[in-house]
Design a protein around this nucleic acid. Structure first.
Length: 282
DNA sequence: ACTATTTCCTGGATGC
DNA sequence: TGCATCCAGGAAATAG
């Protein structure tokens, strides 16, 4: 369940391992439902490109690519540069990006293998196929929404103006805020004392201010934990690498609230299970 | 323009 | 033990 902090951790680890490497060839598997761009376009866009950087946008991992010959030229103009492109990976639920030796056995549910000039493989493995692969060429990839760690208070508050949807659903809406998933939504709502079913437009500016702080806190703490456990997660099975943030409500249905000892409740909102303390959250 | 619901997919957990 | 069923999750598609 990679959300913003996990994706950030993974992107940083990948950046360490593959920045500067060149993609020599691309193999894509039979299952094309996880390709958001045509397979042939993905392959031709990636091949012979140098990985200039790897970064996170929302829950997406963006590989910035440049043509090999353009490698380390002096400044270029800002206009759309055909030598540039991006490979965009969404891990979905169970997606993993694995950097390994080519002789390593190809795991079940491997959908893409990139052969790198360094001799390593970069593989995309995803049993459940909720992940998505695409490329952007003409323009920069637009992930929609604002980055929760970058947005300022005023634009954050205005995201919810006039929205009758439950605050929980609004937090999960990637077109508003990108990167927050089910776990960190529940944790942020607990920390700010808001019930997940509260209508977004019924929340005062002051309360939204608390939520604003809580989201940033929770994400930063989780990234800090991920960053300290980053070692070799890419080679492992993805879940092992993360120190779990101590969840205060998520997955704790029936257990006692850490603040007031009231049993944590679980309800379903928009098909997502939502955990909260009925006493601490209003 | 917005909101709610359904769909996709597999493996692990649970129930009988 | 075996088999069926349910559930997890993000986002796109569908329906209202």
């Amino acid at each position: 369940m990679p959300e913003l902090p996990e994706v950030e951790t993974i992107a940083r680890g990948l950046a360490r391992r593959v920045t500067g490497d060149v993609i020599e060839s691309v193999w894509l598997g039979e299952k094309t439902d996880l390709l958001k761009s045509p397979a042939a376009l993905i392959a031709t866009t990636l091949e012979s490109r140098r990985i200039a950087s790897v970064r996170r946008m929302g829950k997406h991992i963006v590989f910035d690519l440049e043509s090999e010959s353009q490698g380390r030229r002096a400044k270029k103009t800002k206009a759309a540069d055909p030598s540039k492109a991006q490979w965009i990976v969404h891990l979905g639920m169970t997606g993993r990006l694995q950097v390994c030796e080519p002789q390593e056995e190809v795991a079940r549910h491997t959908h893409a293998i990139l052969k790198l000039a360094s001799g390593k493989d970069l593989r995309f493995v995803d049993p459940r196929r909720f992940g998505r692969l695409s490329v952007a060429t003409a323009a920069d990839f637009d992930a929609g929404g604002v980055e929760p760690l970058e947005v300022e208070l005023d634009p954050f508050v205005s995201l919810f103006r006039g929205r009758k949807t439950p605050i929980k659903s609004a937090l999960l809406n990637q077109k508003l805020l990108r990167g927050v998933g089910n776990i960190y939504a529940d944790e942020s709502l607990f920390r700010s004392g808001l019930r997940p079913r509260r209508r977004a437009n019924s929340i005062t500016r002051e309360q939204l201010g608390k939520l604003f702080v809580a989201i940033k806190e929770v994400l930063r703490e989780a990234i800090a934990l991920g960053g300290s456990s980053i070692s070799d997660y890419v080679d492992d099975d993805g879940k092992e690498g993360f120190f779990q943030l101590q969840h205060r409500v998520y997955g704790r249905e029936g257990e006692r609230c850490l603040v007031c000892k009231t049993p944590i409740k679980r309800i379903v909102i928009g098909g997502r299970s939502s955990h909260f303390c009925p006493k601490c959250q209003k």
